[in-house]
């Protein structure tokens, strides 16, 4: 342990469960997609795979470039409009923070996967940078959700009708991020990683303080049971 790195399934003996669950999740998602498609197919047929080249091009422009840049979500002009003042700053920034946050988490996880199964590159400074980005992503996500909560439940603009679905979706996001941080905190505390490494996971490090009073055995138990 001379270099900072990630230990996949650290102190976890039953890592295989995650693969079973992952497979299960994929199956459920596939089934859900199948049900949706069946629902849409109740409608009449029409060929919407025509002009494939144009479709792909406009998909890249609209859904990927425009979508990631949030032009339409911030409501900044149109293709022929010069004004760069967003008409929907709050709603746009809310969505942007959530997308960037989730994107960072996805990226960091993907890097872990590659590093674990393909080429081992995530150690030392690189690993610490990924740890930092992961925590940053979590924080941005939480800020985004906070803005969403304020808009939806405090500002209550006329156009937003709130159903349980909105609350569940936002709660899911918060649960993912918070449990991630708590887990990270428990691991940092239990592993007693050198603080100059752990500090890069700035939020997980703060959470580790919660566990700092407990005995090493308890810390490990927390970590294992949470996992």
């Amino acid at each position: 342990m001379d270099q900072a790195h990630r230990e996949i399934f650290w102190n976890i003996d039953y890592g295989w469960i995650i693969y079973i669950l992952a497979a299960l999740a994929v199956a459920v998602i596939a089934y859900a997609i199948y049900r949706r498609v069946r629902l849409w197919r109740l409608g009449k047929p029409e060929n919407r795979l025509d002009n494939l080249g144009q479709r792909i091009k406009s998909f890249i422009v609209i859904a990927i470039v425009d979508g990631l840049a949030h032009r339409r979500f911030l409501a900044i002009g149109g293709p022929k409009i010069k004004s760069l003042v967003p008409k929907e700053p709050l709603a746009g920034i809310m969505h942007l923070l959530i997308v960037i946050g989730a994107g960072l988490l996805l990226f960091v996880t993907a890097m872990d996967v590659i590093s674990h199964y393909v080429v081992d590159f995530s150690h030392g400074g690189t690993y610490l940078a990924f740890s930092f980005l992961g925590d940053l992503g979590g924080v941005l996500l939480l800020i985004g959700v906070a803005i969403a909560l304020v808009r939806r439940y405090i500002q209550r603009p006329d156009r937003l009708d709130s159903t349980p679905d909105d609350a569940i979706a936002l709660a899911l996001v918060v649960i993912v991020v918070l449990t991630g941080f708590i887990l990270e905190g428990a691991r940092i505390a239990a592993a007693a990683s050198p603080s100059e490494w752990a500090r890069w996971s700035f939020l997980g490090y703060s959470f580790s303080k919660i566990f700092s009073g407990a005995s090493p055995g308890t810390q490990l138990a927390w970590y294992q049971s949470l996992w």
Partner: peptide, 26 residues
């Protein structure tokens, strides 16, 4: 991990499904 699994599934049963369906609609 149960929570994790529930969340991924939630992706398709809550409004979070727009991550997949809205680009498809485009």
């Amino acid at each position: 991990f149960t929570i994790g699994a529930v969340i991924y599934i939630g992706l398709l049963f809550t409004k979070l499904s727009h991550i997949l369906i809205s680009p498809l609609n485009v």
